[in-house]
Nucleic acid binder design. Structure first.
Lengths: 165, 165
DNA sequence: CGCTTCTTTCAGAAATTTGTGAAGTTAAGG
DNA sequence: CCTTAACTTCACAAATTTCTGAAAGAAGCG
């Protein structure tokens, strides 16, 4: 049993991982329910679950799932899938996509940069405080540029690990 | 007045920036009070303030400042300074250091990695879910390595902007 | 078209988080 | 040593957040 197979998937083990990983995400600033939903999807074999399945595993109401999924979809951390010919929706983590979304704190960086520009303007670019803000701004602008390149290197690195899969 | 000087520092403008920038940090997951304290320090000309100064600018109690500073110090986002021969403490943002601390989500990454390893082990590295977690883990390990190099490039880039200052 | 199944919205209850005042602790300076 | 200034801790009150149940809203299917 050191190497479980799909057949012997242990709900307790799954739940333990889900709650543990979710807790880490919460500590890093994510809301609890989105974190739990996301972790549950990550730990699913299919990489996708229905609203009902999520509600059952996490022991929460459909309303809670709905709210969490809306948030995750906005952040591009899950994709909604409509099985054609059914009202049932399916929420999926795209293996190759989700961590790019996590990295896409781009929007966050942009808002920080905007706030800093306002600060530099109103405090004066030649004051000590203004210069500090200005340097901070330069840092974020630099990071912006680097992240794209880094993701490119990751894709290359990934292929050395997994091939073109 | 398009370019304010230190002499005409406008408390309202400062406060506006502080609250605005703090709000962005909060939205990114930081607690409110640490965010406000940090923003206030960033916007100070000296790059450092006493507990009393912070309390007055932010209109909060010494207890609130104390709690916020403890958090920020743990995250290495501010340094505590003891002016020798005084009980007054001074909290400082190290211009060159603070954003490295922000980037030092290293600890966060490490905890995520640990949780993911647990997941891979308990779900089985050959199951679909296990493989997904495993790939996620590989991604974070890759990022770990890249961040250090990126910071190095930033320091070099910074010198092209500001010289050795 | 109406029935049925799934999802979303919304008001409110419950839990958590946050900040305060007051008491406690530490260390400088007489 | 004792006084006093500063920081910290703690219990509690207030504000905020989070989740639920119930009702409303879509969309397939007969």
């Amino acid at each position: 049993m050191a190497e479980p197979t799909a057949a012997e998937r242990d709900p307790e083990a799954v739940s333990k991982f889900v709650e543990g990983f979710a807790a880490q995400l919460v500590e890093a600033g994510m809301q609890r329910m989105p974190a739990r939903v996301f972790a549950a999807l990550l730990a699913s074999d299919a990489g996708a679950m229905t609203s009902a399945e999520l509600g059952e595993q996490l022991q929460v109401s459909p309303a809670a799932v709905s709210g969490a999924v809306r948030y995750l979809a906005q952040q591009h951390m899950v994709a909604r899938e409509r099985e054609p010919g059914s009202r049932r929706e399916r929420y999926r983590v795209h293996s190759n996509q989700w961590y790019e979304a996590l990295t896409n704190r781009d929007a966050v960086l942009k808002r920080w940069e905007l706030a800093l520009r306002v600060g530099v303007d109103s405090l004066g670019s030649t004051t000590p405080a203004g210069r500090r803000l200005s340097e901070t701004l330069a840092f974020f602008e630099f990071i912006d540029g680097e992240v794209a390149a880094m993701m490119e290197r990751w894709r290359a690195h990934r292929e050395t690990l997994y091939g073109d899969g």
